[in-house]
Design a protein around this nucleic acid. Structure first.
Lengths: 191, 191, 191, 191
DNA sequence: TATGAATGAGCGTTCATTCAT
DNA sequence: TATGAATGAACGCTCATTCAT
């Protein structure tokens, strides 16, 4: 459609700058410059900065969801599904560290407060693979009988911390370590 | 001494506003107003906003540290020490939710980037009770042989997520649940 | 090109206000108002107030230099060249009293301290017509054998005082008086 | 009288700071600190900063006048009296460079604009030794028949420039040079 | 549709001055 | 008389947003 995909360029520029410098380190003029458009042009695509930020977040979240669902099958056993998700999350954000930083920035800001609910958990609509997985896990007595919120925290809380550490270079998450980490998370929630 | 303790009032006002609205949602004039002082007065106590923010953080961190060390004994067995710390962290921040929010804001900002290292881990000087505990745990083969960073993430990552949830009302962490959570964290790191 | 020449208007407004009221009597908002622009607009043309002040000075200095060089010829005898310069200086600043005041303000401020060297003397590059003139004058034994700094002071010090007086209305420098003054200055330096 | 002469200390502190840093580089709090008094104390002695500045100027001017009058005799011939004054001015300010800087600051500011009239010329009351000297000089046809303002500029303009240069280290005014300079000034005004 | 100059509210900070002690 | 904590107006500057071109 768009010859130059200005919208995409604005998105990319905003994502990079905000991920690297925070919302207040990324003025609209700077986003425009990096996107190669005029400042006013951004407002053709987004009503204001808040909307740009929020839509960008939604898009990233959607992309994450589809990445996680790739190769995911509800037919597989609980544990296997859990391992798949855990590994997929780590791999995804290791491959896209800026996405992780952006999402973090978002959650840790007035923007994120409104739609709330933990990062990956943001189940809009009926089907949330995490929720489904955990409910089944508890039902089948494979997982501890704890509130889903708690299961979620036990399962993925460590990943958030580790991804931060990985991005900052405090630890290197290779495939072996990733597997050990997810196994340990499983230990936390399994019966 | 101080009849009115303006410094304390400024601290409290800044902490509340920043916890609730972020650094940029808390202009100095607003902090001053909530503290019941004139804008210029803040500068008698803190050279500038950055220093106010940083000193406030240091103070909160120090308070946390001393809260955790209360009743903590290196003489006790590893597992018991771990339980003590986990429970203490949750209880402390449940009692002081604004402290938690403030500290989160701080870490998720250019300020926190410099001293980096996860929240509670910020070990100044030689002895860090977390580091000591985990090193001994690994050495005594009570904990998994993983990098300390990873152990730390497994042990406390869930708590960060849960505290957020608790503060937002998505879960209620009573004593029973607290205990179950910490037990589960232990499951993640124990051999 | 520019229909409205905002940069020029800002320059003019800044020059007038600073000349009349000093640097601190000319807030950016006031400069903006007189220039007929918004306060923020100034910053499109000048990074900050210091740069506005410094560039304005450079521009004025350049204009002065070119005014002095007009009709000046190194081929003419020393005395004639001296008369030309003296008269030209007085005429130039009588015609542009605000320039004189601005330049004075500049030299009498932290800004002017760095490039220092008396007002008109500010020789950039090799060739300074004043320096050249005085060196030749001394060499040819037409002028007293004194340090150039001293010759300069004797030659132009009176002009600075007189221009101030003229601007304040304490004396009226007409062509006759101008000539007498410059002749007297020549008396001070000639052998 | 005053055991500690706070007024004098405030004067000295203000003079030094303003001479070195300009009016705006010398906040009342800084003056107070250097004077060893509390900020509020200054207001016991001077109604406000403007008055402090103005009174300080008057005092310096008075001190200069009395320094110049020392050894000055109307009985001596014109030329001798002129030499006396010229040399005395240079010596005085070479000995008190901060006084010179302060007076310069003062004249080059909104403060100095009101009482105006050139530095040393500020004749309050009937008898001004400069005015008297120049009037007699003209009358006796020892000096050129020029407006007193002009004579004054020719006589003392060079000194102002040279003192600046001396203070900045661009020239060293020793006794020999001082004499040559004053002689040259005499050349400018003498018939 | 795209531009980017222009806007002006809002920020962090300074400092002359006041006043309770 | 002296203090210095407190005040708040005013400053330089930023940046989300608008709008004439």
């Amino acid at each position: 459609m768009e010859r130059t995909d200005k919208r995409g360029k604005i998105f990319q520029a905003a994502m990079e700058l905000i991920a690297e410098r925070g919302f207040h380190g990324a003025p609209m003029a700077m986003i425009a410059e990096r996107a190669g458009v005029a400042a006013g042009t951004i407002y053709r695509y987004f009503d204001n900065k808040d909307i740009l930020i929020t839509e960008l977040y939604s898009e990233l979240e959607e992309e994450l969801r589809s990445a996680l669902e790739e190769g995911y099958s509800v037919a597989k056993p609980i544990r296997e599904r859990f391992l798949h998700l855990g590994i997929a999350i780590l791999r995804y954000f290791i491959a896209h560290p800026l996405y992780f930083r952006y999402i973090e920035q978002y959650h840790n800001s007035p923007y994120g407060v409104s739609l709330r609910r933990d990062m990956i958990m943001s189940k809009i609509g009926k089907h949330n693979i995490f929720k489904d997985l955990f409910e089944q896990g508890i039902e089948q007595q494979v997982m501890k009988d704890l509130p889903i919120t708690v299961i979620f925290a036990l399962a993925f809380g460590p990943l958030l911390v580790l991804l931060k550490d990985h991005i900052h270079g405090f630890v290197i998450l290779d495939d072996g370590l990733i597997r050990q980490v997810i196994d340990s998370c499983w230990d936390a929630i399994r019966r």
